[in-house]
């Protein structure tokens, strides 16, 4: 591997994304991408007693599913990178405690999935691992409980608020593709923390958009690519407001992304019928939309060059209450079909 420019890493032996799997909750199952997900749940508890247990079960079952789909035995997976939104990442560590895979718990808020993919591909390209598992989850109810208010509280959500996705995404990265013609991760661009002073926890898209812009522009500068090189540039969960901000700000910086840019938070719900205001958010948003929808598009060669930029808001309820602004982060991976 080799460092390019400020913060991008070019991978000499681009790791394959061997398999992905996604599980989503009932609301996501009612959205426009429903048919792309591996499993849609009928209720948010999924037979468990608490939201937290339900979220652990979602990530656990999704990891089981991706391992089963990949056809490689779990014992051949060298490392796992996983994280979520709950305090101390308990859904991932509790959900994966029985996997017997060496475990790196990571936190990048909603950018966790791509953070895991960045680290996993470096492990593989560096020769430290043959197969790496990346997984993440989020749950609307556990997130509301931890970050906002009890579900039964009769309050109104402002129009800029986003809806935390109940769901999980998981991917297996590998140094071989088992002749499956899998897409490969060619570049990773880890992001910087960018804080433009937004304090409104009900406007996450606006808080994270500057970080996405920074990572996007840095990636393009470092690699010398133009936005039009990519068939699709996809952000994690900027939602409608963040998407518009990113599009406009990129344009003023001289990058036109109008034609090939979209956002997972915008894609996952139908704004008109599902009343999700500014769109979806949460680790599970980019996780499930990439693992479900975009991975299939890549496999079917409908998209051959994808820049996936997962965004995260690095805050918690204590920092909000102490009046802190919301630092944003965005990690990017370039995913390409190199074998025609």
């Amino acid at each position: 591997m080799k460092k390019l420019g400020n913060q991008t890493i070019m991978l000499n032996n681009p790791p394959y994304i061997l398999e992905t799997s996604s599980i989503v909750g009932p609301k996501e199952a009612g959205g426009p991408l429903a048919k792309y997900f591996d499993q849609c749940l009928e209720d948010e508890f999924w037979g468990e007693k608490t939201w937290e247990k339900a979220e652990s079960k979602i990530i656990k079952e999704n990891v089981n599913s991706v391992v089963a789909k990949s056809g490689i035995p779990a014992t051949d997976i060298d490392y796992c990178f996983a994280g979520d939104l709950l305090n101390q990442c308990i859904s991932s560590s509790f959900g994966l405690r029985e996997t017997n895979i060496p475990f790196f718990g990571i936190f990048g808020a909603c950018s966790t999935f791509v953070e895991g993919m960045c680290l996993g591909s470096l492990f593989i390209d560096g020769g430290a691992a043959k197969n790496v598992l990346c997984a993440t989850s989020s749950h609307f109810c556990s997130a509301e409980k931890q970050f906002r208010f009890p579900l039964e509280l009769g309050n109104q959500r402002p129009p800029s608020a986003q809806w935390t996705v109940t769901g999980s995404g998981a991917a297996i990265l590998s140094n071989t593709n088992l002749d499956k013609k899998c897409p490969q991760i060619t570049y990773v661009t880890p992001g910087k923390i960018v804080d433009m002073g937004v304090k409104d926890a009900n406007n996450m898209g606006a808080a994270m958009a500057p970080a996405a812009l920074d990572t996007l522009i840095t990636h393009l500068r470092d690699t010398g690519r133009k936005p039009s090189y990519y068939d699709a540039i996809i952000t994690g969960d900027l939602g409608y407001i963040g998407k518009e901000i990113l599009t406009e700000m990129a344009e003023t910086k001289g990058y036109n992304i109008k034609n090939n840019y979209n956002d997972c938070g915008v894609l996952i719900f139908d704004k008109e019928t599902q009343d999700t205001h500014s769109g979806g958010s949460g680790c599970g948003c980019v996780g499930s939309v990439f693992s479900g929808y975009f991975y299939q598009m890549l496999k079917e060669k409908k998209i051959n060059r994808l820049l996936l930029i997962a965004t995260g808001a690095l805050m918690n309820s204590t920092s909000s209450q102490q009046g802190e602004s919301i630092p944003g982060i965005a990690h990017a991976v370039a995913i390409e079909n190199l074998e025609k």
Binding site: K27, E44, W51, F140, C141, P150, L151, E152, Q274, D275
Partner: peptide, 9 residues
């Protein structure tokens, strides 16, 4: 008596 439930909207 009650169990938490998700808001449908």
């Amino acid at each position: 008596i009650a169990k938490p439930k998700i808001k449908k909207q």
